[in-house]
């Protein structure tokens, strides 16, 4: 390095430093714009919902119109029950479907199935609700937890299938070959080696589907409908958080509005928590 070059170096460095500062500032600003709506929504819901939250909210039935107090115990339980039922109905077939589409993509049937699943992910949830209404509510003679769960399941299935498929495609062929070369039948290689290799990423997809189903309102409006009391059987209409929030929000009563906000706060928190948990899980296992 010659003497003349020496003093120039710091200036270049300073200029680079400035550029990188600018770039960082731009990125931070953009990130801020992206996060801002989220923060606004959550803080507004928290401010409106928090005052109405108390222990009663979690286990009491709704109070009759005009009376104060009461809770959303039945709606919370109904949501939990329907999400579990829809999960049981949709996760296993979703996983198998994703596995089939990813691993047998040379078969016509697999390509057709993939196309159908793609279409299903795009169907508006209200249409799925209508479908469940026509196929289940009408033939069974009434609204029921079964019909609501089926509608949610139809929404979850393609999400689970799509993520499973996408994850499995990323798993190198080498792994399949190693399994086969150990003298294992293909189905064991797929179910016990390949699915296992992708399990944490697949679990993330399942969690996201659960989060999505927990918040869906439209497909429940004319499948599980609503119930102001504890449902005695799964063949009865059943309350759920989203529908209860909807019902209360459009009511004329101040007290019900407060409860609707509290319900929203719970719902949003649960959905956030599921999302966060699945990301954490993915991060922990991928390290």
């Amino acid at each position: 390095m010659s003497k003349a070059d020496a003093p120039r170096l710091p200036r270049i460095q300073r200029r680079r430093h400035f550029k990188s500062l600018m770039a960082n500032a731009v990125i931070m600003t953009l990130a801020g714009f992206a996060i801002l709506p989220l923060i606004l929504v959550f803080s507004y819901i928290a401010r409106s919902g928090f005052p109405a939250l108390n222990l009663d909210f979690f286990y009491k039935l709704p109070a009759p119109a005009g009376e104060t107090g009461g809770g959303m115990g039945n709606a919370i339980l109904g949501s939990v029950a329907m999400v579990i039922m829809s999960g049981v109905m949709s996760i296993p077939p979703g996983l198998l479907c994703g596995l089939y589409v990813a691993e047998f993509s040379h078969q016509k049937l697999a390509r057709l199935l993939r196309f159908v699943i793609d279409l299903m992910t795009g169907v508006p949830s209200i249409v799925i609700g209508l479908f469940a209404y026509a196929m289940l509510v009408v033939p069974l003679g009434g609204f029921s937890a079964w019909a609501g769960s089926a509608a949610l399941g139809i929404i979850m299935m393609p999400i689970v299938s799509r993520t499973t498929e996408e994850i499995l495609r990323l798993i190198p062929d080498q792994l399949r070959e190693s399994g086969l070369a150990l003298g294992l039948p293909r189905w064991k290689v797929l179910l016990r080696l390949i699915m296992r290799a992708g399990r944490s990423a697949i679990a993330t997809g399942v969690f996201l589907a659960v989060a999505r189903a927990s918040g869906e309102t439209a497909p429940l409006l004319f499948t599980s409908f609503n119930n102001q009391y504890w449902s005695k059987s799964l063949s009865e209409p059943i309350a759920s958080l989203p529908v209860q929030i909807y019902t209360y929000a459009i009511s004329p009563y101040e007290e019900w509005h407060r409860l609707a906000w509290a319900g929203s706060l719970i719902l949003v928190t649960v959905v956030f928590a599921i999302n966060l948990l699945s990301r954490l899980l993915l991060k922990r296992t991928s390290n």
């Binding site: 190198p172 080498q174 792994l175 070959e177 190693s178 086969l180 070369a181 150990l182 003298g183 294992l184 039948p185 080696l193 296992r196 290799a197 399990r199 944490s200 296992t285």
Partner: peptide
């Protein structure tokens, strides 16, 4: 499947089962 349990194989790239 039976053939491969008597005649094993090791590949070019080491590929332990990841999980």
């Amino acid at each position: 499947v039976a053939v491969r349990s008597c005649i094993g194989m090791v590949f070019q790239k080491a590929n332990p089962f990841p999980t």
